[in-house]
Nucleic acid binder design. Structure first.
Lengths: 139, 139
DNA sequence: CAATAATTTATAATGATTCTAAAGTAGTGT
DNA sequence: ACACTACTTTAGAATCATTATAAATTATTG
């Protein structure tokens, strides 16, 4: 059980007041050993499953996650059109996507060789480089 | 003006009968010098703008594009959650995404150094490796 | 503790995509 | 050319994710 003040600070720095609902979301997202991937729907189900506290409306989940995303406390991962995933691992890294199971697996920056982009676009700078490695059962 | 028989074959091999609507879509997609990126909504507007022939319903556009995607005549590109793009360039390549303008630019395979994935997932094989380079104005 | 501004919530609105069922069209055999 | 069958098209309905709304609730500040 990590310190609430960490979460309160995370919320404040994202421009949000700490409320029961937002703190519950923080606990689910950040009070854990390993980073993880989730969808809004999945996160919402996790909240319902806890059912220790009262429910949190979908709108609040969206608002909170979007604020965290903007602040950089969460990363959005786009794999295919039909699902939006978020990642509590905000470090510079990439992903495997298992097309058989729709599962995401982290691919550390150190596990990918330097990516050499040889084409320059005049007047533009590179914001980020994202690699998605799609995998499937090898039979 | 390219030969219709090419389009008819493309449709047939995708499991679709050649119809006026589908041929019109083929012309827009494949009867051009350079490959290009489009969204369903954008393609639909292109069809309306031609207004030489009768309109094509959205459902037909979706059906046809999905069949081409499955057959591999089109590639789907996932950049962010709110837009699905397609690419008539089905060769192995990557993309720049201009976050200021929401514009996609091809990044040829030859313009990216070899991508070295050092992590192996047991029992899985790599289907594809996709690189997205997000760019913006460099001020 | 009261006043104010932010928040939560259920529900409505929106937008993309898929489904449906009736009307239209292509392919096949004659 | 004709008719039959199966596939298509279409408008509109249905669905799903996400965002907007507006009234009731709650946090903050003095």
């Amino acid at each position: 059980m990590s310190n609430n003040s960490v979460f309160i600070e995370k919320l404040r720095s994202s421009g949000l007041r700490p409320t029961r609902q937002r703190l519950q979301i923080c606990k689910l997202l950040f009070d854990r050993q390993n980073t993880f991937h989730f969808s809004i729907q999945g996160l919402s189900k996790m909240i319902v499953n806890q059912h220790k506290e009262k429910k949190v409306s979908l709108a609040t989940v969206y608002n909170t996650i979007n604020a965290f995303k903007q602040k950089g406390y969460l990363k959005e991962i786009s794999i295919n059109s039909d699902k939006t995933y978020f990642d509590t691992n905000t470090s510079n890294h990439h992903h495997f996507f298992n097309e058989s199971t729709n599962e995401l697996i982290d691919l550390d920056n150190s596990e990918v060789g330097k990516i050499d982009i040889r084409k320059k676009i005049p007047g533009k700078k590179i914001n980020s480089i994202e690699v998605i490695v799609k995998i499937a059962n090898s039979n």
